[in-house]
């Protein structure tokens, strides 16, 4: 008996007016795997993440996430997904704790206060829990954003360029927190154009260029030393095809 992957996308097209951001994209992600999608700016990575995380609808094609067909089951799926983006979705005028409690109420998280406190501890922000998010550094905001995304214990995580704007120290802290998420019980999809950070924790590697997946391999069969060349070969080839 074959089990359905956690994410199955077939023939996905997404148009913005006449512009096709995704062009017949296919994707399978097995449950519990960590997939990193690399791609240059304008490859459609964020558009793909928005479709997978119910924020945007497909123009054509089928999208099944966590066994739920989108967009029909979007409401049901939202209980099970966590999204971390370069935008933090945090209210600057509320404190770190208030932000978590607010989102926890939206997700109807049981034992909310305890859950919020334990997450604040996990991301190292207990000491700043009563401070307004407006006073936080970019790195602290992103750590709090991780806590927000984990409040309802999602089994699917979508991380869209989470390292954007972080300095090296903050990136390192974020990486440590992300490592704790990669337990094999959660399916994780990360998009980035930073090769070094993207290769660190993943199980599978994909390259997306101009709205299509052009490369997909398990990390074991990827030669890290030469991956940069592989990446530029694919990116360059795609640009030549389209020119």
């Amino acid at each position: 008996m074959t089990t359905l992957p956690a994410i199955r996308v077939r023939g996905l097209w997404k148009y913005f007016g006449h512009f096709a951001a995704l062009r017949g994209l296919d994707l399978d992600v097995e449950a519990g795997r960590f997939l990193t999608i690399f791609g240059p700016n304008g490859a459609g990575k964020t558009t793909l993440m928005k479709v997978l995380s119910t924020q945007s609808g497909a123009s054509e094609g089928s999208v099944v996430v966590g066994g739920v067909e989108l967009p029909r089951g979007a409401g049901e799926l939202r209980r099970r997904i966590g999204v971390i983006s370069h935008n933090t979705y945090l209210y600057p005028q509320l404190s770190a704790y208030e932000n978590l409690v607010f989102y926890g109420r939206m997700y109807q998280v049981p034992d909310l206060r305890d859950r919020a406190m334990s997450l604040l501890e996990e991301v190292g922000l207990v000491g700043r829990m009563d401070d307004r998010v407006a006073t936080f550094s970019r790195g602290m905001e992103q750590r709090l954003s991780i806590a927000r995304a984990l409040l309802h214990q999602p089994d699917l995580m979508f991380l869209d360029e989470p390292y954007t704007g972080l300095d090296q120290h903050a990136s390192r802290m974020l990486r440590d927190v992300l490592e704790t998420l990669h337990t094999g019980e959660r399916t994780i999809v990360l998009t980035t154009h930073n090769l070094e950070q993207g290769l660190e924790m993943c199980d599978d590697v994909a390259i997306q260029v101009r709205g299509r997946m052009v490369y997909r391999e398990p990390i074991e069969s990827v030669d890290r030393a030469s991956f940069e060349q592989t990446y530029f070969d694919y990116v360059g080839k795609e640009f030549r095809w389209d020119s």
């Binding site: 924020q55 939202r78 935008n87 979705y89 945090l90 209210y91 939206m106 905001e141």
Partner: peptide, 18 residues
Amino acid sequence: AQEKENDCLQGLLLCPVD
């Protein structure tokens, strides 16, 4: 307009609420 700061509107729309 305040929901656009940090793209909070998307955060709200991602919540499993009607």
